[in-house]
Nucleic acid binder design. Structure first.
Lengths: 335, 335
DNA sequence: TTGAAAGCGCTAACAT
DNA sequence: ATGTTAGCGCTTTCAA
């Protein structure tokens, strides 16, 4: 007895029909009688037959598309809301989405693993771009929030320079005099662990916050706790800060929590502004003002790039495609 | 000129080597000289060659596994935290995860689509089980929070009866006299739209809340707004309710918001308890007490079932496997 | 170190 | 309504 898997051939033999008839029954094709269809389906079920998805996709005319999505963490609503948007955007095109997060490994490892199952990979890839492209083995990569610098890498970037300049201007108009920033710390583990590099958000902040405020920066972990902790350290070092920009909304929630704990009135004593535009921010007390990133636009741009690459008719190699999305302030009550 | 895709054959021809040599170069196998490897890699890049994932997976000895995950919505942190746990659980086994949500279509449609790309599908499947199993075409289904009643369907269920009885007892000990429930409304669209069926949570509530409280139930949408709205209606109809159980934490957040808006002190005037155990609940004011569902356990049980089915050595058909997880109260400050 | 032959398991034309 | 013949594009023996 062959010990391998049960194939279409086994079913055909058991049912006393041809392979083709089994295909017709399994896939609900029309050219088959009710009787034989049911016979085939029954014997397939009895044998526990399961079509090989690789074989059927290889033989089939229409290949189904799949895109890999690499996120920082599924525990940060920013990423999951982005994932939600991407699903919404690609579902109508019939694309599948394979999910992965940095919590499971190096970006390079994730890309290598996904490259065997996806036709394109989009998301956040910290690390060396050349290494990423090599790991992708020809599968196109679309990177978020960082420009593409090598062939095979494409990008959707965020224009924080424009956005943060406008944000700070408006905050000044609302009375802000002394800014502070709770910036993202270097990742503790994985790719590039411990190697801190100023984020684009910080760079934009330092360019526009004014000389007094540019130095009022602390780094903190990407979590609610991290934000709380960061605010405490910021206020200890810079008691005169009256307006704080926090790296993202999750951390800003922690900062607001800390402010409340310390008896600091928001926005009376301290204006707090996050970045992301999470809908959850509206449930805070007071509701969180934020520099909102249009996740739908990000998802659409990324999907657009993938579409161009995969279905654009142009044969590879393709020059890097880069699109830009500009965040916009969402004024609620914390600033 | 053939207008089809670029195959390994094209690369082999262009590089003047055999197909096999191209495979060796692309996959980083040892038995090849540096020179030819680089030659092959270069010409592959120039031609824009991308290996067919279907062909390579079909031919390869080691088949990679993929599990489909069907969730209600990626905009509800409960589901995304569950997804995070599932990723953590399956990543060490090298399984891929294909994501889908009810926002993109009927459970039956989603299952049909995923069945072509996944080796098993787990998650939430409202709708007729027989139809789901038929749509899965032999791919095993593992359903959450609903027992399996047909072959091909397996399940991880939640013991709300035990959990809610214990919860209500403890609430009584804390002074609760009159309970109310904000229950989930029927979905507005998709599968089974408009057809309301009492949830297991409601059934358990009605069994244990006592005759006076069993009737104090309103239904509301699965969203923050829905929860706010639900609490308003509950209090209008049953002003004497002093303790409210809300279908999930997301809705409970809305309820807490509404209470604050109406000047109702929590937990002084009204105890509020959610269900899920979201970490975000800790950031509310006051922090949300909740009947916590152990998402890690859910994910582990589901993955365990899939493992048994796929790698258990037993040939299909398999009898339905059902495992149980019991939610436990997580006392914070809202009750 | 490289090449030739033989599948992997299925679907798509074309018969019949 | 059913069977037959060719592939799909790659990896794996095995031989050179």
């Amino acid at each position: 007895m062959g010990s391998g898997r049960i194939t279409i051939e086994d079913v055909a033999a058991a049912a006393g029909v041809s392979r083709q008839t089994v295909t017709r029954a399994m896939n609900g094709l029309p050219e088959i009688s009710r009787r034989t269809r049911e016979l085939v389906l029954r014997t397939a079920a009895e044998l526990g037959y399961r079509p090989s998805r690789f074989a059927s996709n290889l033989a089939a005319r229409r290949k189904t598309r799949a895109v890999g999505l690499v996120l920082g963490s599924l525990r940060n609503p920013y990423y999951t809301e982005l994932a939600a948007e991407l699903l919404d955007v690609v579902a109508p095109r019939g694309w599948h989405v394979l999910m992965a997060s940095h919590e499971q490994g190096d970006a390079v490892e994730l890309v290598a693993a996904l490259s065997g199952q996806a036709d394109a990979i989009v998301g956040y890839f910290p690390g060396d771009e050349a290494a990423l492209v090599a790991a992708a083995r020809g599968v196109p990569l679309v990177q978020m929030e960082r420009p593409a610098t090598v062939p095979g890498m494409h990008a959707v970037v965020l224009d924080f320079d424009t956005a943060i300049e406008a944000l700070l201007d408006e905050l000044r108009a609302r009375g802000a005099r002394r800014f502070g920033l709770v910036e993202l710390a270097a990742p503790a583990a994985g790719d590039g662990a411990g190697r801190y590099r100023p984020t684009f958000r910080r760079q934009a902040y330092e360019r526009h916050a004014g000389p007094d405020s540019a130095a009022a920066v602390v780094v903190a972990d990407e979590s609610i706790r991290g934000g709380a902790d960061g605010l405490a350290r910021l206020r200890a070092a810079h008691p005169d800060v009256d307006t704080v920009l926090v790296f993202n909304d999750l951390m800003a929630m922690g900062a607001m929590q800390q402010a409340q704990l310390d008896g600091v009135a928001v926005p009376g004593d301290l204006r707090v502004v996050g970045v992301d535009g999470l809908s959850l921010g509206a449930v805070m007390t007071p509701p969180l003002s934020t520099l909102s990133i249009d996740r739908r636009a990000l998802a659409e741009e990324a999907a657009g790039i993938v579409g161009t690459l995969l279905d654009g008719g142009e044969p590879p190699p393709h020059p890097s495609i880069v699109r830009t999305v500009t965040p916009r302030p969402l004024w609620r009550e914390s600033a």
